[in-house]
């Protein structure tokens, strides 16, 4: 494992959203709409953030709701783009921002494995060699040939995770998805992460609110506070500081 190789590098990244900016409609053309239109305000979702993530690291991004954690993940994934600054990425990315997005309710679990798996960039040929493994991991053998609309939320998450994990990513992006599914399946997912981590080749970036998870699984913590970078460091230092900060805030 070469810890010197950079997997992800944020170089003074700023992301600006515009509050009250909506899709245009004809009213703007025909009516003198100045009166009831709210001013368009730029909101900085990420403010001049720079950090580096090395290959093989498991990095937890922590911070309050709305602090910009998910925005950072989406920029890494290429779903959104930075307003300023640049991001360098070295490696094949798999995003798990939401499990089972792209599933179609009228199709069976098995059909959705192919639909969803190919959405992650896997070929049909590769998927047909992995389909049994995916079904076994999801523990959905009895329901796999039924339409996905009959599945519970937990079952969808299980199937979604089992598919996405097959991509053999070099960089894995995870956004609080472990909150879905029952404890047993959560454990299973975490075991799978440990397995991936041991291989040492995959870089994992995970957004989490569970400080226990962050402490136990991450080798580095990135703390984003009000769109700004509050700190980068080892879990033992930062997690407790964050914990104290959050509690101090609540008792005010």
């Amino acid at each position: 494992m070469n810890s010197q190789e950079i997997a992800i590098k944020f170089d003074s990244v700023t992301k600006i959203y515009h509050k009250n900016l909506k899709a245009l409609n004809l009213r703007l053309l025909f009516v003198n709409a100045g009166s009831d239109i709210k001013p368009i305000l730029p909101i900085k979702s990420l403010d001049n953030i720079s950090f580096e993530i090395f290959k093989g690291e498991t990095v937890g991004i922590i911070g309050q709701n709305g602090s910009g954690k998910s925005t950072a993940l989406k920029i890494i994934a290429g779903i959104s783009s930075p307003t300023n600054g640049s991001v360098m990425i070295d490696g094949k990315i798999t995003t798990m921002l939401e499990l089972g997005s792209g599933f179609h309710g009228d199709f069976t679990g098995r059909e959705n494995i192919f639909l969803n798996g190919s959405l992650f960039g896997m070929s049909n040929y590769y998927l047909s060699s992995k389909v049994d493994e995916i079904i076994a991991f999801s523990e959905l053998e009895s329901k796999i040939d039924e339409p996905v609309r009959t599945y519970s939320a937990g079952m969808i998450a299980r199937l979604g995770f089992s598919i996405a994990i097959q991509t053999q990513p070099e960089i894995l992006l995870i956004d609080e998805i472990l909150a879905v599914g029952d404890i047993a399946f959560q454990e299973k997912c975490l075991c799978k992460f440990e397995e991936i981590k041991k291989s040492g080749k995959t870089t994992v970036v995970l957004v989490t609110h569970s400080l226990e998870q962050a402490k136990e699984h991450c080798s580095k913590i990135i703390w984003i506070q009000n769109s700004k970078l509050q700190g980068v460091g080892s879990p033992s230092d930062l997690v407790d500081e964050y914990d104290t900060y959050m509690h101090g805030k609540n008792s005010k």
Binding site: I75, G78, S81, G85, D90, G91, K92
Partner: peptide, 10 residues
């Protein structure tokens, strides 16, 4: 095999 990608506003 590694491939480097850049994400920037351009």
């Amino acid at each position: 095999m590694s491939q480097i990608v850049y994400r920037s506003p351009q």
